Computed example of a mutant assay.
Amino acid sequence: MRKYKHITPDQTTVTQGSPLSHHIPSMKSLIAFDATARLGSMTAAAEEERTTQPTISQRIRTLEENIGLPLFDRQGSRLTLTFQGDRFYREVAPHLKEIRKAFEQIVHDGKRPSPSIVIAAGSGFTHLWLLPRLPALKQAFPDLSFKLMPIDRADDPELQAADIAIRFGPHVPQDEGRLLASEAVFPVCSPSYAHEHNLSETFTEASLSDTLLLHQDIKDPRWLDWTQWLQCAGLSLTTQDDVFLYHNYALLLNATLAGQGIALGWSILVEDYLTTGQLISLEPRVKRENYGYWLSVKHHRSALIKPVSDWLIGAVHQ
């Protein structure tokens, strides 16, 4: 049991004439008092707090002046708490312990790496839709980190291993993926190119004679090329001698933005450019039944990932 000495008002060494201050004591003063009360020595408290004995003494003196009562009996060879000091210690010490615990916990949490979520999708979708929305995604989930993986092959093992996989193609009955966006494909070009070639709102066979169709080097049957699109739209393709194949969709779209010709646009990939007026769309729109972007998640991490997948689906329909 801690020993303390009861000091009556006429024995106090602190002036009682001034009114009691209502200011909250400094944390340094409280820590100095707590350490001295626990260790029974200002010298020991100074060693624990990595400071000097006079500094600890001054902080305790300031605390006593703030309170208006002595907290230690300094008349013996060893410091002992006064009656008021002991009561104050028993009330303050648990709270200081909780403050230390909270501080240590937040420092520990700050050093812990954020859970990482891998989102895999085709390169066109990754660069044209996901990447522009990454800042908003991070803002919505500040405790998570995200890694985007552009993967174009449907059978790529990394696509299957990703936390969130977004694949393009027809609906697969055994796949539990959720529809992110249906397919809608139509010609797009820059406003200047449309004006230069007198293109109206509808793309016709007559439009083919005076325009350059921009092609992508597609070796994937999931995607429509110009020949397939024209067939779906009920139009015939005239032979074009000047054909340049672009390696990926982002390059193809950059050429379209630069006014070099007409490209096929997938609605979800070009919607931002249509909204800003950098591109214009031409009718008709080709839609294949059950084709679109499908989102699937890892089931063993679904509690962490499902809110993110819900956010992605919601962002498509904003």
Rank of each mutant, 00 (worst) to 15 (best):
V316E: 03
I164D: 05
K147I: 11
T62F: 02
L130Q: 02
A181R: 02
H195D: 13
R50I: 05
T211I: 12
H317I: 10
W294T: 13
T82M: 10
S309L: 10
I218Y: 05
A154L: 12
L144M: 13
N66S: 15
A44F: 01
A37Q: 10
P284G: 10
P70S: 10
S296R: 10
D86K: 12
Q318M: 06
L230H: 03
A255Q: 14
F168E: 04
D155T: 14
K298M: 10
L208I: 07
L212Q: 11
Y293K: 01
D152E: 11
A206C: 06
T8F: 07
V243H: 04
I117E: 03
S182F: 00
H108N: 04
P142T: 02
A45D: 05
R112T: 15
L304E: 08
T202C: 09
L208N: 01
E289Y: 06
D225R: 10
W223L: 14
H299A: 15
T227A: 05
P25Y: 11
S267V: 03
S207Q: 00
L130T: 03
Q84D: 09
L128F: 00
P94L: 15
L212M: 08
R167K: 03
L81A: 09
S281L: 05
Y246L: 00
G314F: 04
D175R: 13
L253N: 05
S281C: 03
P70Y: 02
L230C: 14
L159W: 05
L199Q: 05
Y293V: 01
H22D: 11
P113R: 00
L213F: 02
E183H: 08
E176N: 15
A315F: 00
K111F: 05
D152P: 01
L212N: 11
L274K: 13
F83R: 12
D175H: 15
S18D: 06
A250R: 13
F125A: 02
G169E: 14
A233R: 00
T12K: 06
A162Q: 08
S26F: 14
R90T: 10
A120Y: 06
P113L: 00
D156L: 05
S302C: 11
E49C: 09
Q105M: 00
S26M: 14
R61W: 04
M1W: 03
G17H: 13
F125K: 03
K28H: 09
L264M: 07
R178I: 08
D225N: 15
L224K: 13
D241G: 12
L312D: 03
S200C: 06
S207H: 04
I31K: 08
I166C: 04
G17V: 11
